[in-house]
Design a protein around this nucleic acid. Structure first.
Lengths: 231, 231
DNA sequence: GTATCATTAAAACAAACGTATGAATTATCT
DNA sequence: AGATAATTCATACGTTTGTTTTAATGATAC
């Protein structure tokens, strides 16, 4: 109880910022909200992080560094076990998205709060956030893409890249979990909702992602066609 | 050229707001940016719409009213043609998402600007936006859900609802098109990108969505299991 | 033409924003 | 203990925010 110092302040700011950015977005969250929530002085953010932008970046770095290293570790392990043979698509998808989704139960690494923040931030309009995330993901993205290329040699690479994109979208949206469109009507009746919502979301999403990834290739219309109405 | 009056002002404000909300988000866009871009007086927004929030709602209502009516019209037409028999999943998906995606080429109804705005707004944190969108979608959502229930009688309804959610996420993300994670590396080389990016996105996304919708049902672990690590 | 209404214009409002300052306080080290 | 560095604090800075106000301008009807 003598070792803890101001480190406390930094962490409390990061925790509060994580919560508030998740709930109200970057632009929608003020420094005074953050420092108020964290019970620290207003000037503490600029002292410890320099600016609001830098704080935002640190909020993500704190979690993403571990996540993406873990993703690479898992991929390395799987490729080692495969001994040169291509991985199964389900393995790759689980390595990337499963590793992410299992964060939901790991409160020490952000839990659902960070997960939802991340899901929402993927469509964040702010330029500096997008470029920051792009850099943060660059390495792991490249590796998983290559793994998919090897796993699906018959699928055009452009197609795989797109489907990776689609999988990211479905996942982001699922974990953002805004209930934006309140899809639920009366289906709650059909199953005990509160209990297993999160337990069951992961296998459900995984099935969906794999189904999409392995879907039949699309048939393109004749090149240059401008109307796409008739069958 | 004598009939146009202040109507012009309203439309110019809506157009500028649509563009700017798309580019910088709701919180990230100021009234002065909007009125400056629209070349109207600052007070015009509050005069014509009452507040920034009401402006935002009008930006969406202007486009969504038509879109969702069209979706219902298309569904009615398909069900009429089916004469009591269940529709094919591909028809339903095309009716909902195809109708949306075809907006991209319809500049009079918002084009890609509105499409991207809509994609981004689905994960918008602001409460009033989410509840507004939920109300705006309620009717059409219910109808399409029912159609899917009939089309896939063997799939549990809860599963269908989730997959609808996932499809929405993949679509939102695809049309938001932030390139947030800059998936592209060197795959541009493999196809003439600029030409057909949008032409080909639609069939690609459709294949993905249908593949996910018709994927094998997930296997759930034993109920109450807290660890999900081992195979 | 004059009265009546709708719209636009310029200016001001208080409140909230991110950031910076300088003194007070606390911890660390010799 | 005393010096030095690190951190916290209250406060203020200059902008920018959404909204309001009051006057000027435009169009429409009698």
């Amino acid at each position: 109880m003598s070792e803890v110092r101001n480190i406390d302040t930094r962490e409390r700011i990061l925790d509060a910022a994580e919560r508030l950015f998740m709930a109200h977005g970057y632009e929608g969250t003020s420094m005074r909200q953050i420092t108020g929530d964290a019970a620290v002085n207003l000037a503490a953010v600029n002292y410890h992080f320099g600016s609001k932008e830098s704080l935002m970046q640190e909020v993500f770095r704190r979690r993403l560094d571990w996540l993406n290293e873990e993703r690479l570790r898992v991929l390395d392990e799987m490729e080692r076990a495969a001994a040169g043979k291509p991985l199964k698509p389900s393995q790759i998808v689980d390595g990337f998205f499963g590793t992410l989704l299992r964060l939901a139960d790991d409160d020490q690494r952000g839990g659902i709060v960070f997960l939802r923040l991340l899901g929402r931030t993927h469509t964040e309009p702010s330029e500096f956030i997008r470029t920051f995330l792009a850099d943060e993901y660059a390495g792991v993205m490249e590796r998983y893409q290559q793994a998919l290329f090897r796993a699906l040699p018959d699928v055009p690479r452009a197609e795989i890249v797109w489907r990776f994109h689609f999988m990211l979208g479905a996942t982001s949206y699922a974990i953002a979990g805004t209930d934006a469109l309140r899809l639920v009507a009366d289906w709650k009746i059909e199953e005990a909702d509160t209990v297993d919502r999160n337990d069951r979301l992961v296998p459900r999403l995984m099935s969906f992602l794999l189904g999409g990834l392995r879907a039949p290739l699309p048939q393109f219309k004749a090149a240059g066609a401008t109307d796409s109405r008739a069958a």
